[in-house]
Simulated assay, not measured.
Amino acid sequence: MTREKSFRTLIRTLGERTMEPIVFIGRVVSVLPQLRNPRRLRLRETLYYLDLCGAKSLPIVLAICFLMGVVMAVNGQIQLSKVGQEIFVVDLVGFAVLKEFGPLMVALIATGRAGSAFAAEIGTMKVDEEISALETMGITPEAYLVLPKLIAMLIALPLLTVLGDAAGLLGGMLIGTTTMGIPVPTYWSRTLEVLDYMTFLLGAAKSLVFAVVVTLAGCYCGFVAQNDALGVGRAATSAVVASIFLVVIADVIITILYSFIGY
C-alpha cells in the first residue's frame, strides 16, 4: 500500500512538473495581444534589455564568430588540400556560418549573458515578494516581466546574428587570402556566387526561434526558483543548461525542416 501511494505521488509530481512549463507558455501567449498597444509596453525596460542582450554582447559575438570562421577555414584547408580543392573552403565557411554556426553561437552567447540574467532577476524578485506584489496590484507578471525581455531578444539576436555572420566570413577570408593565397576579389566573388539571400534569411529565421527559446527558458526558471539565495543561483544555472539543451534541439528540428524544402 505504501509503495502504491509512493508511485501515485511520483506520477502526480511528474505530471505537475510537466504541466508547469506548458502553463507558463500559455500565460505568456495570453498576454501577447498587449503588444498591439504600445502604451502598455515598458519602453525603458525594453531598451535596457536591448542594451544588455545586444550592445554589450556585440564584442564577444564578433570575437567568437571571427575565430570560428578562422577555425573552420583552417580545418577545411587541411582536408581539401589533399584533393587540390582549396577553393571550396569558401563554400564551407559561407554555408556553415550563415546557416548553422552563426545563429547557434550567437544563441549560446545570449544564453550565458541574457538567459541567466533573466532567471536571476526574476528569481530575486520572487524572493523579495515583488511578483506577489504585482499580482496584488492586478498586474500580470508575465506581461510586466517577460514581454520587454522577449521584444529585446527578438530584436537583438537577429542583428547580432547578421554581424556575427559577417565576422565569421571575414575570419574565413583571412585564412583564405593569407595561408591559401586566394586573392580577396576571388574569395569575395566566390562567396557571393555560392550564397544567396535565402541562405541568409534561413539563418536569421533560426535566430528568431532561438530568441524565443532563450527568453522563455530563462524567465521560466526564474518564476519557479525557490525563495532563497541558493534557489536564485540554481535558477540561473538551470536557465543556462535548459536554454542550451532547447536551443540545440530547436536547431536540429529546424535543420531537418530546411532539408525537406531543399535548403
Rank of each mutant, 00 (worst) to 15 (best):
M180W: 01
A211Y: 05
Y220T: 01
R190N: 11
A143N: 08
G138V: 01
Y187T: 09
D165F: 09
K149P: 02
L154Q: 07
F200M: 13
P141S: 04
P158V: 01
G164I: 09
C219H: 08
L160Y: 00
E142W: 08
S207P: 07
G168F: 12
L147Q: 01
V213T: 12
A217Q: 12
T191K: 05
S189I: 04
Y187R: 10
A204T: 15
W188Q: 11
G176M: 06
L192I: 10
Y220C: 04
C219S: 15
R190H: 14
M173S: 13
I151T: 06
P148H: 07
V194N: 06
A167Y: 02
R190P: 01
T215M: 01
A211V: 02
A204I: 15
I151V: 13
S189F: 06
T199D: 15
Y197F: 15
T191Y: 15
D196M: 07
V214M: 11
G171H: 08
T179M: 14
V194R: 08
I151L: 15
L157F: 11
L163C: 10
G164M: 06
F200P: 03
G218D: 03
L145D: 00
I155D: 01
R190F: 07
A166F: 13
I175E: 00
Y187N: 12
E193R: 13
T161R: 03
G172Q: 09
L208Q: 08
V184H: 09
T177V: 13
P183A: 10
L201C: 07
M137T: 12
P158I: 00
G218W: 03
I182C: 05
S189N: 14
L157Y: 07
G164A: 08
T199R: 04
G138M: 02
I155G: 02
I151S: 04
V213Y: 05
L169P: 05
D196P: 09
C219V: 11
I139F: 12
L201E: 05
L216C: 04
G172C: 11
A143L: 02
M198P: 00
A166Q: 10
G171P: 12
V213D: 02
M180L: 13
W188G: 00
G168A: 08
A167W: 05
T186E: 14
L192D: 04
A143S: 13
L208E: 09
I139L: 11
A166V: 14
L208K: 02
L201D: 05
T199H: 15
T191E: 12
P148W: 07
K149R: 15
K206S: 01
L208F: 14
M180H: 03
K149D: 00
T178F: 06
T186G: 11
A217W: 06
T179H: 11
L147V: 13
D165K: 08
A156R: 07
A167V: 03
G181T: 09
L150A: 00
M198F: 10
